[in-house]
Design a protein around this nucleic acid. Structure first.
Lengths: 168, 168
DNA sequence: CTTGGAATGTCAACAAAGCTGACGTATTGT
DNA sequence: ACAATACGTCAGCTTTGTTGACATTCCAAG
């Protein structure tokens, strides 16, 4: 809509037109569906949902994390998280142990079975991600990450960066 | 995990390590929350949800589209879409007209009020997108789009590309 | 021309997962 | 001793997905 108005800028700002932004918005919407499709299929078989996947992912990522910490990462209410956590504990995928230093806290870990499911889910998700990365190439991937990081809320970005370079 | 195993590849494949992929996965999760946060606030005020936003977006994008076409773009069941559409029609944001050629079809359009809400929602979402784009720069944006497109399902990508360059 | 099947859209009922609010219990720290 | 914190739970509501049943419309085969 604006290319006629700012000819002196040449190509440099054309990527900020409403049309380009709309394409980006639709790309996010459609890509997110692909992003979740493979794990969703595995989860549906086991009677779980996306909420279970998120809990499993971050417990795997930060073993021993507390309920409160998980809450602030996931950005949901404790009632909502608790419903998911309860089924995972009942099914023997997650174990909750009373804190040693502070006995009010519960530390969360994946069990062997939990780790198996986590692996299946993240393998499925990584396979698609890897294919996309490989198709796009390293420069594109760097840009992808940059834009996503700039799109996060301030507080969310802190969570993201806090687990940025944790060693394997 | 693998940098010791393939020294002959140098930096070239390091962006495909499990760790890099995991970071991309988390970036998608966290960024999507930011992506939807601003419209969600507007929608909540009016008593609508994300499903209403999606319907409004694509009706705006393709005026006169049929329910069936919208269904295949959104990837939900017709019953689910219908509930959303019904409230939008009742509230006078969308109008549904019986098809002239085929009377089974309903053609969907935004009303004046509907266009006002659409504008508010897309302005909010574009503002964040624009800030992210501006912060990351044009090269990063190109990579962002490339990776997202590679992440879509085959069928989804066809929908995406079908509305790729429709003129304003 | 009729009639049966396919396509389109609507209504009803249920499930997953988010939310608020209230409350109980154990533990910690002042 | 008492207030604050961490966690769990009950009850109830909302949004948005699902399946199943049904009405309307179109089209094509007989």
């Amino acid at each position: 809509m604006a290319e006629g108005l700012q000819p002196q800028l040449g190509q440099s700002l054309l990527f900020l037109t409403d049309e380009q932004l709309r394409k980006g918005i639709e790309a996010m919407f459609f890509a997110y569906r692909g992003f979740t499709a493979d794990p969703d299929r595995i989860l549906a078989q086991k009677g779980y949902g996306r909420a279970h996947h998120r809990a499993i992912h971050f417990i795997h990522r930060s073993p021993g994390t507390t309920v409160n910490n998980l809450l602030s990462i996931l950005g949901v209410t404790k009632q909502s998280l608790n419903r998911v956590l309860r089924t995972l504990i009942e099914d023997g995928l997650v174990e909750s142990t009373v804190g040693t230093r502070d006995k009010r806290e519960r530390h969360l870990h994946l069990t062997g079975d939990g780790a198996v499911l986590e692996r299946a889910l993240s393998d499925a998700q990584r396979d698609r991600m890897r294919a996309a990365y490989r198709a796009a190439g390293p420069a594109a991937v760097a840009g992808f990450r940059q834009v996503l990081e700039a799109m996060m809320d301030e507080e969310t970005r802190h969570h993201y960066e806090a687990m940025k370079d944790r060693p394997e």
